[in-house]
Write a protein that binds this DNA or RNA. Structure first.
Lengths: 143, 143
DNA sequence: ATATTTGCAAATTCTTTGCAACTTA
DNA sequence: TAAGTTGCAAAGAATTTGCAAATAT
C-alpha cells in the first residue's frame, strides 16, 4: 500500500497539487480496498474511521484521481458512478447480474488484443476501455 | 418503420400496457432516427413536431422501452444517459473521442463470439453487453 | 367501468460550485 | 506568503414520484 501511495504523492507534487491531509486519507482508503465504491461509500468509510472529510472534497479528489489515471469510474447502471483503483489492479472487465446486482470481474487476453487492434485500425488512440456484460448469474438463474 | 412499430404495439398489448397517443408518438420518433439521443433530445424532437408530451412521460416511456428491450441506454460519460433503438439496428460497440465527443460505432464478430463464450463459461446468461473504447479520434490526434 | 397513464409540480439523488477561511510548499 | 484546498451551503442537472384528471380497453 505504500508503493501506490508514493506514486500518487509523486504525481501530485509534479503537477503542483498539494498533498493535504484529506487527500492522504482518501488515497489510503481507496488503495486499501479492491472493491468498487461510490463517492458516498467512500465518504462513509472515511467517516467510520473518524475522518470527517466533506463530500465536496471527496468528489473533488475522485475527479482528480480519475483524471490522473489512478482510479477509473464505472457505470453499473445504478444511477451513480462507482470507482476502483487502477494502480496495482490489473485491467479487467465486468459481468453484472441484473438480478442480484453482483459484479464479477474477468479478464481475457484475446479480447484485450482485439480492442487494441480495432482501435488502431481506425486511427483511434485508445486511452481506456470498458466492457460490461449484463445478465443473470449462475446463482440467480435457478429455474 | 411500420414493422418496429407493430412489434412494440404487440408487446404492449401482451403485457397489458396501453398504447396511448403519447407512446405511439414516442415510439415513432425513436425508430425514425438511428442516432443516439437523450431524454431531453427526444423531448425536444417531439416538441418541434408540435407534440407537447411531458418530460415525465418521456422518461417513463424510455424506462418501459428499455426494460422491454426495444431500446438500450448508453453512458458516454456526459452525465446523462443516451439511448438508441435495438430493433432494426444490429448490435455494435462504441468508440468515444474524449476530445471532440464524437461517438463511432463498430462491430467485430470475433469480439461478439468471445463475449458469448466468456459469459457461458461462467454460467452467466448474457442479456446485453456494452463495450466502449475511450480515446482520441484520428481528427483530434493532430500533433 | 376500471385499470392504466398523463401532466404538473414538488421531491430526490447525485454532483458541482462560489466563497471565505485555512493549509501546504 | 502565495497558490492551492477545504467546508459549507446553495446551486445544478437529471430523473423520479404523488396525485388528481384524463384515457384506453
Amino acid at each position: 500500500m505504500e508503493r501506490e501511495y508514493e506514486v500518487a504523492a509523486k504525481y501530485l507534487k509534479e503537477h503542483s497539487f498539494k498533498l493535504t491531509g484529506q487527500r492522504k486519507k482518501i488515497i489510503d482508503a481507496i488503495f486499501a480496498t479492491h472493491e468498487h465504491f461510490s463517492a458516498d461509500d467512500l465518504h462513509d468509510v472515511l467517516r467510520e474511521k473518524g475522518e470527517a472529510i466533506s463530500k465536496a472534497t471527496v468528489y473533488r479528489t475522485l475527479s482528480l484521481l480519475a483524471e490522473s489515471g489512478f482510479i477509473e469510474s464505472r457505470d453499473f447502471g445504478r444511477g451513480q458512478l462507482y470507482y476502483e483503483h487502477v494502480l496495482g489492479h490489473e485491467h479487467h472487465d465486468h459481468m453484472i447480474c441484473t438480478s442480484c446486482g453482483k459484479v464479477f470481474e474477468f479478464r481475457n487476453a484475446e479480447i484485450e488484443k482485439l480492442k487494441e487492434r480495432i482501435a488502431k485500425s481506425r486511427g483511434f488512440r485508445m486511452q481506456k476501455h470498458s466492457l460490461r456484460i449484463f445478465g443473470t448469474c449462475k446463482d440467480c438463474f435457478v429455474s
